[in-house]
Design a protein around this nucleic acid. Structure first.
Ligand SMILES: [Mn+2]
Ligand SMILES: [Mn+2]
Ligand SMILES: [Zn+2]
Ligand SMILES: [Zn+2]
Lengths: 140, 140
DNA sequence: GCTATAATTAATAACCGTTCTTATTTAGGA
DNA sequence: TCCTAAATAAGAACGGTTATTAATTATAGC
């Protein structure tokens, strides 16, 4: 069985067709889909699936650490499997993104954070700009 | 005259009592206030000020680069004067924050970004965790 | 200083992504 | 196969933010 489904069950959650489909879309569909995107995909196979079900289960998956939500500053959350830690370069015009891995942020900030005695649980980092295709000749 | 007011005027905007007061609260009040916090402060001096006016003007101030909005993951935007570039350590329990300056993120990411040919306009970085007072003995 | 007028405001409705409610259905253990 | 707590579909509610509009006002030009 899919290891994501195993982890759902290990968390005390039931394996429902809706949850199988949500994980399927996250694994095989496009990256960085909104809840509505995901719901629309699911409805092709299962027309009666509800947007509320998608949100509820995405939040469960996030709480289990299987999924992460990212904010590209357009007013809606994008969801992706929580595989390898990375961040994004986001084009403010067309919305295209470039992922960049190799984040050493928490070690870089180690000294500053150490002095605060905070117990760190995570961080968000997104870089914004204009991709090559969206840059005007005048440099915007 | 206040240099922020000068920059407002230079941007083609009128100097209204409401705008004076908003800048006053941002300069002299607490950091990281929500629009509602700011509105409540203003209403002590000017009872009829409208929340819409606060939002509209905050967005103008942001577009002029005088103010920045930050997201502490509690569903509302916090506003602060755009003085020196910095980021935050945010306690997920009590909401307390620590600011840390000295961000060299864009030079650190220079190589990666350079290859993408993006024209960078900014970035967001927030670190989350639990402050010392909010950490349980068991380490949460 | 006055006036004309476009900018701004107060009040309030609308928006919209997300969460909540509830009656019904269902996954999974006994 | 049953039982029951968990999950779902449908749709209402929520809450932060934005849009609308009639009235007010800052300011440029005289
Ligand atoms: Mn990603
Ligand atoms: Mn700050
Ligand atoms: Zn990172
Ligand atoms: Zn920075």
């Amino acid at each position: 069985m899919n290891s994501f489904l195993q982890r759902l069950a290990a968390g005390g959650y039931r394996i429902t067709p809706q949850r199988r489909l949500i994980l399927e879309v996250l694994q095989q569909g496009a990256r960085h889909q909104t809840a509505e995107d995901i719901c629309a995909s699911l409805q092709q196979k299962e027309p009666n699936i509800s947007l509320g079900t998608v949100y509820r289960n995405l939040n469960i998956l996030i709480s289990l650490g299987l999924v992460t939500g990212v904010d590209f500053k357009d007013g809606r959350i994008r969801y992706e499997l929580n595989d390898s830690h990375h961040h994004h370069l986001v084009c403010l015009n067309c919305g295209n993104t470039v992922e960049f891995p190799g984040c050493n942020l928490e070690e870089t900030l180690g000294d500053i954070i150490g002095r605060t005695r905070f117990k760190i649980t995570g961080h968000i980092l997104e870089v914004f700009g204009y991709c090559r295709a969206c840059q005007e000749p005048d440099g915007r």
